[in-house]
Amino acid sequence: MTNDKSISELLSRGILSENPIFKLALSMCPAVGISTTVMNGVMLGIAVFFVQVFSSVTISLFKNVIHPRIRIPSYTLTIATWVTVIDLVLAAYMPGAYAKMGIFVKLIVAFAIITMRLEMFACKEKVSDSFWDAVGMGLGFMVGMVVIGAFRELFGSGMILGYDVLGYKPLLFFILPSAGFFVVGLMMAFFNWIEVVYKQKKGAKA
């Protein structure tokens, strides 16, 4: 890993070139399980975003005192702490959303993307870099969830953000869990295609 990454590079890496869902294929359970509406995607995205940022910064701050033999338990402990805090805050200040999301928020403890960023990045890099990396990854996850959610909500129930836009329900299949796999697969292909086209153009120019 190099230390001379700029903020925009760190951000775009999380959102595009190393997008947790479409590129790294991590944390697929939530991507498949609850991305049935845009709102679900946004809510879980926000929760993951904060957990990722807080955990990355915490680990980056304490990276010198974390014993290498127990780094994974330390990560888990850190993530669990922040998940609990965010769970409590959501329950207290957003009870309506929490009633729907509560059960998934607790699951964030086991999201692979967060542990992976701590292991790969935060435990080696500067606090500021870790912060921006976490912001990028959190946003990337949120974008992924929202895109999948929008696709499934539109084609599954004909709505976007709960507003009826199509007036009919094209394919109920898309809001069923199994459709999550298909949508994620299609999206992955789409993102890869964009990258290939982009690289070709860049190559042609140079």
Binding site: I70, P73, S74, T84, L88
Partner: peptide
Amino acid sequence: ITFRLTVSCLLAALVMGSAFIIT
């Protein structure tokens, strides 16, 4: 290791406890 894990658990408990009291 034991000492560091204990300290981190205590720190975590402190953070969670404060969040609980506030919310």
